[in-house]
Design a protein around this nucleic acid. Structure first.
Lengths: 252, 252
DNA sequence: AGGAGCTTGTGAACGTGAGAACAAAATCGG
DNA sequence: CCGATTTTGTTCTCACGTTCACAAGCTCCT
């Protein structure tokens, strides 16, 4: 997260609508839980109920909600519809956000079709790719357009969110173009670290990193304590030993 | 992350190979950065170089690496190949992990084709779906198999990692089957909170949550301080007011 | 009306993570 | 061989996040 944080040093400073980042990341989960409860016809829920549905503990949930205001009723709980609306408003999904997807490979394809994407609050306004072979292809009710049209589209549709689903190689360049065109939030699926100027938010979704984190924990389950203590490499520092090949996943 | 943590209360307890979770989450990033440096023919890198490549600050990187051991050389830096191997070993990607993907919709399709998935360290051994219409379809060099074969496959191929790319509806049931079959790590793409027993790790990748987090920050950029202070809802608590519809993204 | 029973909102304690700063160790030049 | 220089490994401090525990506040029953 790259935000120009204008926070004075003083005490905990929770005034001025400063909701902790960890809380912000959970609000969408609460929103989904509330929607599920609502769909089940449940009108009121306690923090305990909500916490269970959201997979957190109730103290955390209450504290999170308290940053938004006092929307519950002691002795009763929370009104599901009301709280849902308040959270949605706080997150900003009561309005529609225009989104462009850049890079229509396998993943871009999947996202373009992903109905859950159309979670109210987001609207895909364009699918872009630089490959002429892809331009013009129809996906659902949209047509792939040339990446060169980016600037026009961003301006015309007031696009503020860009999704990068290109390979690692062109990702930074695409990112720069997005930023230059006026996009101020980026969701990056390419396996690279993108750099953006202050004021632009960027989030990353990385499959192979998630798998590797799982692998780490998996490794110490089976053996438990039985780590493969391998080549400690003699003091021949400076020379590159003959080590097994391992990849880091820069799958361009 | 749901791990049966066997940690005694005492002091900071960093002994016994306890690497902080935050560090574990960054190791794959370092691994990728090292691979990139290696591919560029760079044999040695300072913490500063590495930190830049990984998008973190150098103090953090050095501290992270120090949990693994003393693999650098003061005054010089880190041997790229050597460090890469050490990190790969620590993560556990020097061995191969068998992976099954359950739910071959758009996303499952994309993941099956995703070459970066085959990042050395992971091997997809089966694509599963319960829909008879999909079973038998060829994707790349694999064939979609019936979900009913799960147990046999997990046992035969010693599968420890499962990826869930089904809709929200069947996700928990699929999860339970995976766990019952012996899978102990799960990567969940379905927009639901899955519950798993202790000892099973679960990680979640959720597109709409990421977008909503971006939207939150986006909302307070344009207006800045100009939050739409809307219906404070009168004290008619208990009644459900007529609010605009908002979704939480339970796109089953 | 009043007390019993819940459930929220929050203050305080605790644990984890981040960053600054520096001592220890290695190289290099003279 | 020694001092200057570089860069790691680590200590210390501060900020952030989580959890506990409880007072405040609401409803319901008698």
């Amino acid at each position: 997260m790259t935000r120009a944080s204008s926070r004075r040093p003083g005490p905990p400073t929770r005034t001025e609508r400063g909701i902790p980042e960890a809380t912000v990341a959970r609000l969408p989960v609460y929103l989904r839980a509330l929607t599920a409860l609502s769909d089940s016809g449940i009108a009121t829920a306690s923090s305990e109920d909500l916490a269970t549905a959201a997979g957190v503990n109730s103290a955390k949930l209450r504290k999170d909600l308290s940053y938004l205001g006092s929307y519950g009723t002691r002795g009763v709980g929370y009104d599901v519809e009301y709280l849902r609306y308040q959270i949605a408003r706080e997150i900003g999904v009561t309005q529609d956000w225009a989104v462009v997807i850049v890079g229509i490979g396998n993943l871009g394809h999947a996202l373009a079709n992903y109905s859950g994407f159309g979670t109210r609050g987001f609207r895909i306004v364009a699918l872009l790719d630089a490959d002429p072979a892809l331009v013009g292809e129809r996906i659902g009710d949209m047509e792939v357009r040339d990446f060169a049209e980016l600037e026009d589209i961003v301006e015309a549709d007031r696009v503020s969110i860009g999704v990068i689903t290109t390979p690692a190689g062109p990702a930074q360049e695409v990112c720069d173009r997005l930023v230059a065109a006026g996009v101020t939030s980026i969701l990056n699926f390419a396996p690279v670290v993108l750099s953006v100027p202050d004021g632009v938010d960027i989030r990353k979704v990385d499959l192979s990193i998630e798998l590797q984190i799982l692998a780490y924990h998996e490794q110490r389950k089976s053996g438990e304590v039985a780590l493969p203590q391998v080549p400690e490499l003699p003091a021949t520092n400076g020379l590159t030993p003959d080590l097994p090949a391992v990849g880091g996943g820069v799958g361009a």
